[in-house]
Every structure is written in structure tokens, then in C-alpha cells.
Design a protein around this nucleic acid. Structure first.
Lengths: 373, 373
DNA sequence: ATTGTATATTTGTCTATACAAATATACAAT
DNA sequence: ATTGTATATTTGTATAGACAAATATACAAT
């Protein structure tokens, strides 16, 4: 017999079935009733509260519908085991640009494994970095009653991305950003130290004697902009003036066919630099392939470095020096932070920054040091 | 006023609220009540059926809980608009081995795009080809109330895979197999013409003058066993005796580190063959890398062919001759067939076999024809 | 046409009662 | 220990009735 008194206020404007319902939920959520514990019978509750049986049944049926309780003839009414927040499924949504591209599979694997550890499932949504697709999926996810969201911001303007986040926050569904931040906005986020990673990579190239180091990437997202900034800072830290002419950047979405053309334009200017950093590994491979076709030997005539260390990097015959991103861990940590919020975790906005590390392979060679200009 | 008579059989063992409930569902699903149509009031239903008001309310409340109806004080009870099968979410589960591996991302992209076209969402589950993981996810999916399942059978015994399928069938949740069949069992399935693809590839190599053609793959799954059979048949069709000594197969799960070792053992016997077919592209790349390390020139000293034509195949400097699998389409067709079943489609088990085609690149060279033995 | 007030309508809440269904539990027989 | 039978227990179904709540609708006044 539980100690806590079942109090039903007959003068309250709150319906009496609802008061009973609420009391029962509170007992369950405070752990006074544990999974498979039997709650008092209808008759017992009538005796303790004076409520009519039908009123009691209405409260209990609602809790059955909500997933808190199950009932057995002759035996009684029992608490269902709770694997997640009642009233909501143990399902979270994940919005990524494209499941096929670069680091997305590894990231999702990290999310999925951590989710499974906590008996959660993930709904996969591809946005193609387009707001209209992301918005469509967001509406679907809310309709499905997801419990949380992991979101890689799209290529849309910050206000658009924020608009999407607010849809979830309005329903008290927590959101965690992954990889990319939204400029001028502070939000729960997991990313990696792109600035430091690029700084270390650039410093490494400088340590190999390179002074004229080019870089190519898209400045569309925060992660790659931070890589550019890290590159620039490393040059400055070594007394080298960062030259705009060696910074080949685009401000639009990465589209492979376009970049295949762009890397040829870049390599046409290769006498200006002895080494080049690609903003991510897919770009590095495009550069490599174009170099081979143009008869440029890597690393003998041009050193090449990438960023990300994607799984297929080590299956490539050209062993690419790159920065290893903890992509799996980024997925994992995103899910952990989201679970923390789902389970009621309050507190300051968290910005988790995971460490990258340099992976030296064979795409960079030592050159005779030439003096900084 | 609707024509159809509300009949409640007072002698039926079926509860009367349930009979009314069923009648209302039928009216809605047959389109006699459309979204936002008003159904008869409680009083009107009492007049037409003689049922007590509380019994009527029980039926109607259940339909409200199931998402068929909504109620407004003073106005009445109305039909909710339907975006998916009522009582179940517009969500399906997809069980794949590993989101990171080979063709899984492309496949899932096909599934996801087709799902989105029909306002469905997909729950992603990684099984690692292990039954215990698949079973865990299956239980989760059923708990979430998924409407259907796309399943790549695991490496477990056929009975185990069937056991998992029966869980869903028991709940009338349709299941479609993808890529791999379950031996001795007939089920809705989408796969590709692995036999014909391998037959064409082997014939192509024979057309290039090769007679001693090796092959390496895992015989664990139906798709790769069919490739082996297609290879053997092509040799026979050309009057070449398939030699067991040129067939390097394993009967266990593909684990990259193990295969890295295995390809070296294979290449140690390379004087026995002038060409080798890898059962899938990742194996082809392992072969290529090992060949480079052993100083074996591809295709000058050894011709190499793959299977699958994964997205990164065309980013590779070694332009691999391979068989292009319609992986995206396989995902798409799996989802289409599942939707067909979800929407009530009956009829014979469907086995959809999509066409592959040979993609000639530069990894295969012409050799002087030597006579069959 | 707009605003204010009253009323009718239908759902929502709550009480009371009776019988049925499923089955755990108790007890007897072997 | 096992099997068979009866009974007690609690939920499930169904009936009847009364009052409350929310608000669309009707009507009057300006």
C-alpha cells in the first residue's frame, strides 16, 4: 500500500478524472510505482476517493492509451515498463544533407549506435542542404511525435534554419546541431576543432618547407570557414602573409561536377604554390585525379593534403595526408547531448568541440625551404 | 443523411461498441464520410440503433484515439483528414547491415526519396549482419508501430531470418526483402540480376582474350552466390572448364582486415590467371592496393574487374571495369513494393529483378588469346 | 451592418447499477 | 506430484440518468 494520499479536489475546475490521472502519472514518474507494479483496483480507488467507477475507468483508460498502464482481467492494472518519455516515442529525427556523401554514413553510424544503446531509434531525413526539404521533413517528424532532433543546418539563411528549430522548440522537442553552427546564434551543438585541425595541417606543411600553400574549399558552412581561418592563422603565426590569390574558395553548395572543372582551373595556376590543402577529402580526390590526368606527380611535383579522413581514405592507393575528424564520435556525442535534454537536462547551452588529429601519409613531400616574402 | 444502415447485432459475441466502431471505420474508409464531414450525433445514433449513449461514446472515443475522428462541443463529431493508414504512423523500418558500407548509403537514398514522395519516413537500423541486433531493432520497430519493413536478411540461418519476418507478419506488417533472398523461401523481394551481370562481365573478359579468369567473393549471401554461378556459366558457355583452383571464396562475413590478408594469398598465385573478378568493388580495391604494393601493374600484368559500381568508383584514379548495379533503383522499388502492400495490395509474391549493366573502364586489357585447355 | 444578449445544441463530466468474461487461486481426488 | 473442478477476483460491457461546458445560432437594438 502506497503512503501517498490520493487527493481529489471536488471544488476544483479541473475534472476529477484528470486529477486522478495526474496523480497516477506522478506516482509512476517519481518511481513510487515501478514497471509491472500493480496499482490499486477500481474498487479500492472508489473506497479511497469516493469517485464513481466510471470516472476512475476514464482516468485509467487514458493512461492505458498514453502507454503508462496495462490491464489484465481478474488480476488488476499494472505499470508498463518505460523505455522513453511517455506520450512520445523513443524515436529521434536526424536531418543530414545526403546520406551518400562523405562523412554522413559514419556520422549516422555514431548516432545510431548511441541511440540503440538507449533503446532509441532514428528517423533518417535527407535535406540536400535545401530548406524546403528540411522543412517538409520537420513537419513529418513533428507529426510522428519524435522526442528530439539532430540537425545539420542547411545552406539556407540563418533565419530559415532558426525557423525550423523553433518549430521543435515550440513543441518542447530538444534540438542539437551537428557539425555546423548557425551564425550569430547560440545553440546546443557538437562540432570538431576545424580551426585547430587546419592550423596543425598548415603548420605541418610549413614544417615540410612549404611556404606557398594554396587552399580550396566552400565557405558556405561554418566548419569549412573555420578551416580557412585556421590555415590563415597558421601562416601568420609563421610570419607568412596569407595571399588571397592562393585561396580558391566558392560560396555555394559543393556540386561534384562543378568542382571537377574548378580543380582544373586551380591546377592551371600550380606554379604559384608547392602544396595545396583541400577543404575536405572528396575535393582532395578530385584534385588528385585531375593532377594525374594533367601529368602532375603527387607528391613529387605538388604536395596535397585533405581534411576529414573518410573511411575510404585508407583504401586509396594515394595515401593522403589529412586531418582525422572524429566523425563517429561527433554522431555519438550529438545523440548523448540530445538524450541529456530529452531526460530533462537543463543548464547552459552546450557547445561540444571534439579534437581532430593530423594523419601523415605520403601525399606531402619535403621541399627546400624558401624564404618568406 | 447516409443511406447505409447502422446494424448492431445484439446476439453477436462481438461487443456492440466494437460493431459500431467498425461500421464507422467502414463508412470512412469507403469514402462515404469524407474529411471534415459530420457524423450523426450521439442522440441520433441512439435513435437509430437503440444503443446506450455511453456505449456510443466508447466507440467514438476509440476512433478519436485512433485518429479517425475529432469532436467539437455543440457542433458534433467530424472525420479527421487522413494522411496515412490510420492507427499506424507513416513510418517504415529499414534493416541494413551497415550504413557505412559499400552500397548501403545509395540504397537508403533510393528508399528515402521514394518514401518522402509518399509522405513516409524511414527508421534506419544497422544489423551488422547479426541476428541478435536485427531482432532488437525489430522489437523496437514493432513497438513504434511501423507500417512496413524493408529487410536485408542477416548472415544468420534462414530459420532465424524467417522468425524475424514472422514477427511482423503476425502483426500484419508487410515485409519486403532487399538484395538478398532467404534460401528455400519465397517472399516479396527486390534484387538485381547478379547471375546475368557476372555472366556478361566474364564473357567480356573472355572477349578480351582471357581464359584463366579467377574470382573472389563471399558465398554467404544469395547475391554473391549468383555472381559466382554466372561466372561459372559464362566459362562453360565458352567451352572453358571452370577451375575450382581459380575460385577464391569465403563462406563468412566480409571483414576488411581479413580480406586484406586474403587478397595477398590470392595474388601469390597470380601466375595461374591473367584476370580476376572481385565479387564487389571494395574487394576490387583491396586487390588493387595489394597489387600496387606487390609491384603488379594493373592492367598491364593483371586485369581486374569489380562489381557494383559504387559512387566512389568514378573518383578512383584506377578506372575500374565493373558491373553497374541499379542500387538507388533497388531502394526505390523496394519502397514502392512495400507501399503497394501497405495500401492493401494483395496477389502473388513478387520478385522484382532489376537489370545491371557492364561498365568498361581501364582495368582490363586485351591479351593474346590462348587456347582453352 | 455591427454589437449585445439569450438560447439551443451537442459534447463532456459524473453518478449508479447489473451482468459477462477471463482466469488465478483454492481445494479435492488420484 | 498431477489433474480436474469450483470459486473468487478484477476487469470489461452495457444500461440509465443528471448536470456542466462551450459556443453556434437566433434575435433584438442601434
Amino acid at each position: 500500500m502506497k503512503d501517498n494520499t490520493m487527493i481529489i479536489d471536488r471544488d476544483s475546475p479541473i475534472p476529477q478524472y484528470f486529477q486522478l490521472q495526474s496523480w497516477l502519472i506522478e506516482q509512476i514518474e517519481q518511481g513510487l510505482f515501478k514497471p509491472h507494479d500493480k496499482i490499486p483496483t477500481e474498487e479500492e480507488i472508489t473506497r479511497r476517493t469516493g469517485l464513481a467507477r466510471a470516472t476512475i475507468r476514464q482516468a485509467i483508460q487514458n493512461l492505458v492509451n498514453m502507454g503508462y498502464l496495462y490491464r489484465k482481467r481478474r488480476l488488476g492494472t499494472f505499470v508498463l515498463s518505460q523505455s522513453a518519455e511517455p506520450g512520445r516515442s523513443a524515436v529521434v529525427g536526424v536531418l543530414v544533407h545526403d546520406i551518400r556523401s562523405g562523412y554522413a554514413p559514419e556520422f549516422l553510424r555514431g548516432v545510431g549506435d548511441e541511440a540503440a544503446r538507449h533503446s532509441y531509434s532514428i528517423i533518417l531525413c535527407n535535406t540536400d542542404d535545401l530548406f524546403i526539404r528540411a522543412d517538409f521533413h520537420a513537419n513529418q517528424l513533428i507529426k510522428h511525435g519524435v522526442t528530439g532532433l539532430i540537425f545539420m543546418p542547411t545552406a539556407a539563411a540563418p533565419e530559415k534554419n532558426l525557423q525550423l528549430i523553433e518549430k521543435f522548440q515550440h513543441k518542447n522537442i530538444p534540438v542539437v546541431l551537428a557539425d555546423r553552427e548557425i551564425p550569430g546564434h547560440s545553440h546546443d551543438m557538437v562540432t570538431t576543432d576545424n580551426f585547430d585541425g587546419a592550423h596543425a595541417l598548415t603548420s605541418h606543411l610549413i614544417g615540410k618547407g612549404h611556404r606557398h600553400i594554396a587552399i580550396t574549399l566552400s565557405t558556405l558552412f561554418s566548419s569549412e570557414r573555420a578551416r580557412l581561418a585556421g590555415y590563415q592563422q597558421a601562416l601568420q603565426d609563421h610570419g607568412i602573409d596569407p595571399e588571397p590569390a592562393l585561396q580558391f574558395t566558392i560560396g555555394e553548395r559543393f556540386i561534384e561536377k562543378h568542382y571537377q572543372h574548378y580543380v582544373r582551373l586551380i591546377l592551371a595556376e600550380r606554379e604559384k604554390f608547392t602544396a595545396i590543402i583541400a577543404g575536405n577529402d572528396p575535393i582532395a580526390y578530385l584534385l588528385y585525379n585531375a593532377a594525374i590526368e594533367l601529368g602532375i606527380a603527387i607528391p613529387d611535383e605538388l604536395s596535397l593534403a585533405g581534411y576529414d579522413d573518410l573511411t575510404f581514405s585508407n583504401a586509396h592507393p594515394m595515401e593522403l595526408t589529412t586531418v582525422h575528424q572524429p566523425i563517429y564520435e561527433m554522431g555519438q556525442e550529438s545523440m548523448k547531448l540530445l538524450l541529456h535534454r530529452i531526460q530533462g537536462g537543463t543548464g547552459a547551452v552546450q557547445s561540444i568541440i571534439l579534437k581532430s588529429h593530423l594523419v601523415e601519409r605520403r601525399s606531402v613531400r619535403l621541399v627546400v625551404q624558401d624564404s618568406p616574402r
